[in-house]
């Protein structure tokens, strides 16, 4: 059974069809890139997969369950329990330290555990920066904290929207290496990107 399946998905805003009859199937453990130019509906699709929006038509099957008609409250629960989200602009809570940003995700999921959060930061090479505020971290470091935050609740699916879009080459490589490592460990990843090089890396890993 696929982890995620979009069946005949359309998203319509008045006259505009942001998505038109899209079909996708993502198996468990796959690393998939969704590519396309600006305005092609990538973010709309990500919002639907990430349970932040509902399709106008079609079915979204997550673990075999159709979530396309679920209430906003139920979608929040699904997002919290099954999906880890990463954004281009990092989006850390600016008055919390790195470790606290990771723990917030634990708090809304189950129970904060500082040691576990520190371990997650250790995985992205930032354990020693745990007590720093976002303003004291570089862009690459902030994105790595966000990766740790997305990982902390062991989600079935990691959904990343242009995760390297705001990073320099070094940090881009660090983040992609992290994704590669997660993929090898069996995590399912969907990366929305318009960068062919990123898509190529994902494709190479898919070939492996």
């Amino acid at each position: 059974m696929s982890l995620l399946e979009l069946k005949n998905i359309s998203k319509i805003y008045g006259e505009l069809k942001a998505l038109d009859n899209v079909n996708i199937k993502v198996e468990k453990g796959e690393w998939v890139a969704i590519m396309g130019p600006s305005g092609s509906g990538k973010s709309t699709m990500m919002n639907i997969i990430g349970c932040m929006d509902k399709p106008s038509l079609g079915e979204v099957l997550l673990d075999g369950v159709d979530i396309s008609k679920e209430s906003s409250k139920k979608l929040t629960e699904i997002r919290r329990d099954k999906i880890g989200l990463i954004f281009q602009q990092f989006h850390m809570v600016n008055y919390l330290t790195a470790v606290e940003n990771v723990m917030v995700s634990q708090y809304y999921h189950s129970m904060p555990d500082e040691e576990e959060a520190l371990e997650a930061l250790g995985r992205v090479g930032l354990r020693e920066r745990a007590k720093h505020l976002p303003s004291q971290l570089s862009g690459g470091e902030q994105q790595r904290v966000c990766v740790a935050r997305a990982l902390i609740n062991a989600p079935e699916l990691i959904l990343a929207d242009e995760p390297t879009g705001n990073l320099d080459e070094d940090n881009e490589n660090i983040v992609l290496d992290l994704f590669r490592q997660l993929h090898r460990e069996g995590t399912t990843l969907i990366v929305v990107t318009h960068d062919p090089e990123v898509a190529e890396i994902i494709n190479e890993n898919f070939q492996e």
Binding site: T76, H91, N94, R149
Partner: peptide, 11 residues
């Protein structure tokens, strides 16, 4: 800030 918290699962 509230959008981030919503994204992280805050109802």
């Amino acid at each position: 800030e509230f959008a981030v918290l919503r994204m992280l699962g805050a109802s």
